[in-house]
Simulated assay, not measured.
Amino acid sequence: MNIIDTLNARMIDVLGPFGGLMVLGLFGVLLILITLPVVLKRPTDPLDRIKAATRADAARAAGPKTERLRTSSGKSKLERYATFLEPQDAKEYGAARLKLLQAGYKSKNAVRYFHFAQFAMGILGLVLGGIYALLEMQMAPVTQKNMAIMLLTPGCVGYLLPKYWITRRVASRKEAIEHGFPDSLDMMLVCVEAGQSLDQSILRVARELKSGFPDLAQEFEIVSQEMKAGKGKEAVLRDMSERCGVQDITSFCTVLIQSQQFGTSIGDALRVYASEMRDKRVMKAEEAANKLPTKMTLATMMLTVPPLLMILIGPSIVGITRMMGTGE
């Protein structure tokens, strides 16, 4: 007990009245970081081992070149922690996957990397908060409430930072797609009227838009590649509308699907829809222009009315003040 009391007194002298609690908290964080990989390690499924052995035997039987082509480049390093880093509910996993797709992250392990980033940033925030709390305790006494705030605030910020980044990325990507979509419709209409098929038109538009609107060009390239792979046009277009998450893209895909189902001309459908998109762009510009007077009213009143009052009423106030001073 003497050794424990001596260590406790030493920590209180160095770190302040909460020195023992701070050391215990940091020790707990380190213990979590050390033991978490062992606890969360997912046992290997025997069926997976059988499948891997079967694939390896088939690759060796096919020859060395085929073995190199078909052998995977390696599993993800986070595969063993998939049960912890991925939602187990299929609906929740699908929602997270769709949001990451709309943000432009199309890797099959994107959900896993996202949750790992949240976990890692949260732990890093807690460590930085603990270091900051230690420095503050050496300079001045810190209450228990302030210490909790200094510890938890960086951790919460680090945990929410990846989610905020994804939300901002989705918004900026949707805005970029909306800006480039009317021009892409006009180019697609020109290609179709020149005699190209829909697949060739989409591929040509993707090449032309790559420098100005890379997000929209990437979506058109995915559509073209999936069509070449033999996937149905209806499924390809619906997948594109889900990935983009833009109402204009959804309406465009619906128009093409209906045109294919009813056997109408794709060129006529594109011409009508492109005309509507041009009108919609003009309406958006007019709406933005009509909002300007309302937005500038407050700034105009704050910057114009006070100087005007000073110019108009200032001399009168000065004259009245002098007159009252002379009368006294």
Rank of each mutant, 00 (worst) to 15 (best):
T153I: 11
K108E: 05
I266C: 14
L33G: 14
S72V: 07
D279V: 03
I317F: 13
P141W: 01
E178L: 15
L30R: 03
E226G: 00
P87G: 10
I34H: 11
G122Q: 01
L26P: 04
R281T: 14
E175N: 05
L237T: 02
L101C: 00
R173C: 14
E234I: 03
S201F: 10
S251L: 14
A53M: 02
A206T: 08
I177T: 03
K295I: 14
L128I: 08
V127T: 05
R60M: 15
A117P: 10
V246T: 01
V192I: 09
I32Y: 15
K233T: 09
L152K: 06
R70C: 04
D186K: 09
E92D: 01
Q88I: 01
K65D: 15
L33V: 11
I313S: 10
Y164E: 13
D45G: 06
I12K: 12
G212W: 00
G267R: 09
L101H: 05
V305S: 07
P87L: 06
R281M: 02
S172N: 11
L7P: 08
L7V: 07
S184K: 08
M227E: 06
L161H: 11
A103K: 00
L256S: 01
A56S: 06
L185D: 07
K163F: 13
R173G: 15
L160Y: 08
S172A: 12
M121E: 08
G104M: 08
A90C: 02
T326W: 04
G314A: 00
P293T: 06
L98T: 04
L40S: 05
A62M: 07
P87K: 09
Y105W: 01
I317E: 05
I123L: 12
D248K: 01
A235Q: 02
F116S: 06
K233Q: 09
S211A: 12
G245V: 13
V255P: 13
A52V: 02
D5H: 06
P141T: 00
H179W: 04
L31A: 15
M139P: 08
L36V: 07
C156P: 13
S73R: 14
I149Q: 12
M187A: 13
T264I: 11
G267P: 05
G319C: 09
M22G: 15
M323P: 07
V318L: 14
